[in-house]
Amino acid sequence: MKKYLSLLLVGVLAVACMFTGCAGGGGKKGGAIKVGVVNNPPSESGYREANVKDMEAVFSAENGYELKTAYSLKNDEQLQAAQGFITEGVDYLLISAAETTGWDEVLKKAKEAGIKVYLFDRMIDVDTSLYEAAVVSDMAKEGDTAVQWLLSQNLPEYNVIHIQGAMGSDAQIGRTGALDAQFAAGTMNKVVQQTATWDEAEAKKIVETVINSGESFNVIYAENDGMAKGAVAALDEAGITHGVDGDVIVMGFDCNKWALRELLAGNWNYDGQCSPFQAQIISDLIKGNKTTSEKKIINEEKGFDAKTLTQSDIDTYGLGE
């Protein structure tokens, strides 16, 4: 009995192998480019959700792609998934790694198998010869863009409440750097610089305390939209006007749709983009519409001014709903 069962099992496996083999061959005949994407799960954040949707939209069957995806927050699971894609024989491997280390072996195997690797959103600590290119955001540039915009407002003086994100995160370090340089140069006064660890309610408390202390301020620089919203709630309760034609300039980051709508209504002044849209750039590179000599490609990111923002900007660049 056992013998027959094991024979049956072997038979089934053999048939299965043949079928997958056929399917693989069929795919190549159709000319679809096989892309394996290893990413963080969309539940991670609004940013990731938009990132995943963008990937699915660009690498669609209509555009001539066959997309395979694997989502995990854990590096070892991501490594396994990448390994799986290599065994399956994809043409391109796209990776946004959970951790920067541990990728050497897998990427070497990919290279041996002739699979081209693109990194997006996050860098990996490996030799640059192991991947074609990395399309990433430059958080420091986001901060620079925002601070340049603020300087262009030509205020008589800058008294800034700076609400930071979780200390040590890429976004916090990048977005803090540019403002810190201004504080150091004396062009702007630091009223207070506190972390709210991305927590909206905490941001509100910080601004409340400044208002209660009676110190004057005219700029709120919050390192994401949620914290800017918290800060604005504190201003509203204290009867301080904000936004376009208001006493206080409100700045946020990430370009959530609801935040851009606040801009459009004139309640906030500025929102800096952190673009999750790397798929089109990678697609252009794959199809040869675009070539690059640089290994690191900085995804161009905008800053939106409440005075020039339009509804179509919100539709194009806004995240979430």
Binding site: S45, T197, W198, D199, E200, A201, K204, G226, K229, G230, A233, W258
Partner: peptide, 16 residues
């Protein structure tokens, strides 16, 4: 109360 303060629910940071 937490949600109503700002009219926003962030599952990651609400009452962290």
């Amino acid at each position: 109360i937490g949600v109503s303060r700002l009219g926003l629910i962030n599952h990651e940071t609400l009452l962290l």
